[in-house]
């Protein structure tokens, strides 16, 4: 005997929704490339210049490596310092921005507005401002990275907090713990490993970002990257990029390892 299956409505039978969304998305893509004047033909036409650049970068000047080791080291220090300062300040803000912990909509909205504002400021603008304030050097770079990481990490953190199991919080509340103790005992253990993972992810981004910040005189390897590019010395550029790649890969490896260990 056949089991009676209810008939699907025609919108489901003809996949109206998925098709509609796909058409809309493709349409928007085409429209936005028209409006912003992106010329796909030009991209493919000038691809030759790009390959030429790659060819010139394909012979890294390895003797340049000792020169950049110190600035690279400085870059890593800047990134670690900036990320740490930013992440430390991000924790209380993330807690206050999490909708499952703070039920006062105005407080939460205010905190999120501040975080949005911080994230809106481009890191290059921040770097320019802080180079003007602190002068050329790594202090400006560290402050820039700290603020940049703060904005990014606090958003990642509060999104993690919003996914936790609320059961232990209820239990700690029923025990008679105050809010700070509840967060310490019931929230932090649940999010610690994801915090570490996001911290390292931000550190990795900051290593890459600080190479660009060097352009504005904010210290680190970026100064040398800018110099080599200005001198069209692409074999030196290649060494800098490869060295940065190694650093990023090492951080990535540490991150993967820690996530496994902490899980």
């Amino acid at each position: 005997m056949m089991t009676q299956v209810p008939r699907r409505p025609w919108t489901q039978r003809w996949h109206v929704k998925p098709i509609g969304w796909t058409v809309l998305m493709v349409g928007l893509l085409i429209a936005s490339s028209r409006m912003t004047g992106v010329d796909v033909a030009m991209f493919f036409g000038n691809l030759g210049q790009f390959t030429e650049l790659l060819v010139r970068m394909s012979q890294p000047a390895w003797d340049y490596l000792p020169v950049i080791l110190n600035p690279l080291y400085e870059t890593i220090q800047m990134a670690i310092l900036g990320t740490t300062i930013g992440a430390v300040f991000a924790v209380p803000f993330a807690v206050l921005a999490a909708s499952n912990l703070v039920h006062n909509r105005w407080l939460r909205g205010g905190i999120r507005l501040i975080l949005d504002l911080v994230r809106t400021l481009p890191d290059l603008l921040l770097a320019a401002i802080f180079v003007a304030i602190f002068g050329i050097g790594s202090t400006a770079g560290v402050v820039t990275l700290a603020i940049f990481s703060f904005g990014m990490v606090s958003k990642l953190f509060y999104e993690v907090i919003e996914t936790i199991d609320m059961g232990p919080l209820e239990a700690m509340e029923s025990v008679g713990a105050n809010p700070l103790v509840i967060i310490w005992y019931a929230v932090l253990p649940q999010i610690l490993n994801q915090f570490v993972s996001y911290f390292l992810y931000t550190l990795e981004i900051n290593v890459r970002a600080s190479t660009v910040l060097g352009y504005l005189g904010a210290g680190g390897i970026g100064v040398f990257l800018q110099r080599s590019l200005n001198e069209f010395n692409y074999s030196q550029t290649a060494v800098i990029i490869l060295a940065t790649l190694v650093v990023v890969m090492v951080i990535d490896g540490i991150s993967n390892h820690l996530r496994r260990v902490l899980l």
């Binding site: 199991d165 059961g167 232990p168 209820e170 239990a171 509340e173 029923s174 025990v175 008679g176 005992y185 019931a186 253990p189 649940q190 610690l192 490993n193």
Partner: peptide, 16 residues
């Protein structure tokens, strides 16, 4: 609340 203990269906321990 200190003098009232509570036990839950899902235990509500911090698993980690």
């Amino acid at each position: 609340r200190r003098k009232i203990g509570m036990i839950f269906q899902n235990f509500n321990l911090v698993k980690r």
